[in-house]
Every structure is written in structure tokens, then in C-alpha cells.
Simulated scan of single mutants.
Amino acid sequence: MSLIEDLNWRYACKRMNGETVEQDKIDIILDAIRLAPTSMGMQIFKVSVITDPKIKKQILEEAAPRQMMIKGCSHLLVFSAYTKLTQEDVNEYIDHLGEVRNITGARLEEYRTKWSFLLGMSEQEIFEWSARQTYIVMAYASIAAASLRVDSTPVEGFNASIVDGILGLPEKNLRSTLLFPLGFRDSNEDHLADTPKVRKDIKDLFIF
């Protein structure tokens, strides 16, 4: 199947049927997130992979009561952004870069000096920058899921503070930005399952 066929198949699933997504498919979706492009390649985000029914139920009831797709999802991904960036974070990435690309000595130190400006960014600037990365990688997860015929829905309508508390994110210098349920559509309960996709025509969307 082609990429465009995959994208036409995908929609924002509103009801999921409770079936479990096979682990090999989950692994591919997570790898798509891992391989997605991010600013400077630093991957300043985390993804919580939640399968515990009690935690999913708590998030649904306390933080996202209108997001009923969570009730029947197989896996709930929670994307979170950094709220701080430390010297240790920068050094860890540069050291890893040097190891993978076999860069040592003065050349590696050039990277360390070049990226030292990151440590002068405010916590709000770090969060906003990091949060934008979560949207980029979420898109890759969505496309990967569609290619495997796994349904997904990006969710912004939730109480992030409550989710953060449930998952203990503040202690990790993280704030949640997106919920991303994965599962299989319940065509009997989801009124959007068989409806045509509504999108603008090319002539109305692009400026040439």
C-alpha cells in the first residue's frame, strides 16, 4: 500500500474496541518516533508507554473525561517536553554523538562549545522548543501506525497538570504535551469510522 493510501485510511479515531496491538507493531511505531527528525538531533522529549488499565482509567476520568478513545485503547502514549536543559544533558548527547560518529578530541569539543548557548535558554524557552519537537515525532508515530493499520488519535484536550501528577513528570523535569492512544477502531460505536475525510483542495491550501 502507498503512503497516500495509508493517510487516507487514517482518521482521528473516537472509539477503540479494546483489542491489544501486537508488540511487533508497537515496536515499529516506537522506532518511528526514535528515528523522527528533531531540532539539532537532540531528542529533548520523552514518551511514556502506558498499558496499565488502572493508569489509563485514571487519566481518562481525572484528566481527559471527554476523550473516550482512551477507554478502549491498547497503549496510551504520553509525549512530554523538557522543562530544563542541563550541562549533563548537553554533554550526554555530545558524548553519544562522538561515540556513534567516531569523533574525538578538539573536534568534539567544538560541538560542546558550539552548543553551549543552549544553557542560556530560559525554562519557558526550553519547554516551548521541546514541546514543538513532540508534535514532529507524534506525526511520525501517526504515519507509522497507519501503515500498520493501527488506529491513533493525537489528543490535546486534557488537563496536563493532572497527567503530570499521575505520571510523576515534574520530578523528571518534564511536562506532558500530547496524549496518543493506539488501538483499533470500533466501527459500531464511532460515527466517524466510515465517513469521508474532509480536507481542503490543493488549490485552496498551497501558495505557488
Rank of each mutant, 00 (worst) to 15 (best):
S2V: 07
L3M: 09
I4L: 04
D6M: 02
L7R: 02
C13T: 01
M16A: 01
N17K: 05
G18P: 12
E19H: 06
E19M: 11
E19Y: 13
I28C: 10
L30V: 09
R34L: 13
P37Y: 11
P37K: 05
T38D: 09
M40F: 10
G41T: 07
I50M: 11
T51D: 11
T51A: 14
I59P: 03
E62V: 09
E62Y: 11
E62I: 12
A63Y: 08
A64Y: 12
P65D: 08
M68N: 14
I70G: 05
I70L: 13
I70Q: 04
C73L: 04
S74Y: 03
H75K: 01
L76K: 06
V78P: 01
T83L: 09
D89W: 04
N91M: 05
Y93D: 04
I94A: 11
D95T: 07
V100A: 06
R101N: 13
N102D: 15
T104R: 13
R107C: 07
L108S: 06
E109K: 07
Y111E: 14
K114M: 09
W115S: 03
F117K: 03
L118I: 08
E125K: 02
E125D: 09
F127M: 06
S130E: 03
R132L: 11
Q133V: 07
Y135L: 01
Y140D: 09
I143T: 02
A145G: 12
L148E: 11
S152W: 00
S152T: 00
V155D: 03
E156S: 02
A160V: 02
A160P: 03
G165D: 14
L169C: 14
P170V: 10
K172G: 05
S176T: 02
L178P: 00
G183M: 06
N188R: 13
E189C: 08
D194H: 11
D194W: 07
D194L: 14
P196F: 08
R199S: 05
R199K: 15
K200Y: 08
K200T: 13
D204Q: 11
F206D: 12
